[in-house]
Design a protein around this nucleic acid. Structure first.
Length: 338
DNA sequence: ATCTACACCTGACCGC
DNA sequence: TGCGGTCAGGTGTAGA
């Protein structure tokens, strides 16, 4: 399930392999992946073809690519990608002449390039990076693959979003890093954002009667956290998911936000969490953070912290908002009342 | 305004 | 073998 570390891993892959390349053609295999692009598949193809991928950005679980016009100017709309539950972006480099003999024949490389993933929904045909008019050089395919079609791609106009902490920049001189797609503007800055504002999060905690996990999952309060990392952060902070957010002390809030930040960072360093083939990086490789999980998916297994203390308590799985929550019954006690 | 419920989706798995 | 039910769960929106 792509959450912040998985999306950031994908963003880094796109930045490394695809940024700078012109879009030669777009192939829409399943229009449902463009549900949020109101002009439809034909409008999507027309908007992208001839523009080049310029920069790769992310906020929370949203990823977007800025675009360059043929004359090099920044386009006024960006390509937004959300991976949903099962989305992937895969980079396939066109087999070139510089294949080393170790990696097999050109025919094998060509076959791998031509192989179509089962749930391919949209394919961008990219040219070589650099001079966008060139027709020679190694091309690439950027594939949007999505089994369940909860994710999607669409174009959204860029609007200014300058954080107060950045000082006042006049609208005319807003740099690309202070532009955000209109469709992403309601998403709060995530804990890995340099302008993440813990005090603003605390104020929102105090204004709601909801349980803390529900609030952690609210992308307009703090973004990038999904079910897995919410459970992991709550385990680290020894908090029960139902504890009302407004009852957290300043210290508990600080510790919880530190735990969220830490677990996201650690997972990113491991390349994300992969339970199955549904989450992979742009090269199709799995992350290995799953082995570091303390709560999520560990029902019936011993709590690591309790085991350390010479105590045996087993992680429990409980229904929570039409999904599951995992916690240690000893470390994460239910709140007194409600 | 704030919150809840549901729709959107496919595939793996389970009990009968 | 097949078939219906359940689960996985992020997001946007309709409705309360």
């Amino acid at each position: 399930m792509p959450e912040l570390p998985e999306v950031e891993t994908v963003r880094e892959g796109i930045a490394e392999h695809s940024v700078g390349r012109p879009v030669r053609a777009v192939r829409v295999v399943d229009a449902r992946s463009l549900r949020r692009h109101l002009p439809g598949p034909a409008g999507f193809e027309a908007a992208l073809t001839g523009r080049a991928l310029r920069g790769a950005y992310r906020r929370g679980k949203y990823l977007w690519l800025t675009l360059s016009e043929p004359d090099g100017a920044l386009a006024d709309e960006a390509l937004v990608v959300h991976l949903g539950m099962s989305g992937q972006l895969l980079v396939r480099d066109e087999p070139g002449g510089d294949l080393d003999s170790e990696s097999g024949s050109e025919a094998e490389a060509r076959a791998a390039y031509d192989e179509v993933p089962r749930h391919l929904r949209v394919a961008l045909e990219l040219g070589p990076a650099g001079d966008s008019g060139s027709t020679s050089g190694a091309g690439q395919r950027l594939l949007f693959v999505d089994q369940r079609i909860f994710g999607g791609m669409f174009l959204s106009p860029l609007v200014p979003d300058v954080p107060a902490a950045a000082g006042k920049a006049s609208l005319g001189e807003v740099s690309e890093r202070f532009l955000v797609p209109q469709a992403v503007k309601h998403i709060a800055r995530d804990p890995l954002d340099e302008f993440f504002d813990p005090a603003a999060v605390r104020r929102k905690f105090l204004r709601t009667s909801s349980g803390i996990k529900k609030v952690l999952l609210d992308q307009s309060v703090i973004s990038g956290v999904g079910n897995i990392y919410a459970d992991e952060a709550l385990w680290r902070a020894r908090l029960h998911y139902a504890k009302p957010a407004r009852t957290l002390s300043a210290a508990q809030t600080r510790d919880l936000l530190a735990a969220v930040t830490q677990v996201l960072r650690e997972s990113l360093a491991a390349g994300g969490t992969s339970f199955d083939a549904l989450y992979v990086n742009v090269l199709g490789e799995s992350g290995y953070f799953e082995r570091s999980l303390n709560a999520y998916g560990r029902a019936g297994e011993p709590c690591h912290r309790c085991a350390e203390a010479g105590r045996t308590s087993l992680i429990v799985r409980e229904p929570f908002q039409n999904r599951s929550s995992y916690r240690c019954p000893h470390c994460q006690r239910a709140p007194r009342s409600r």
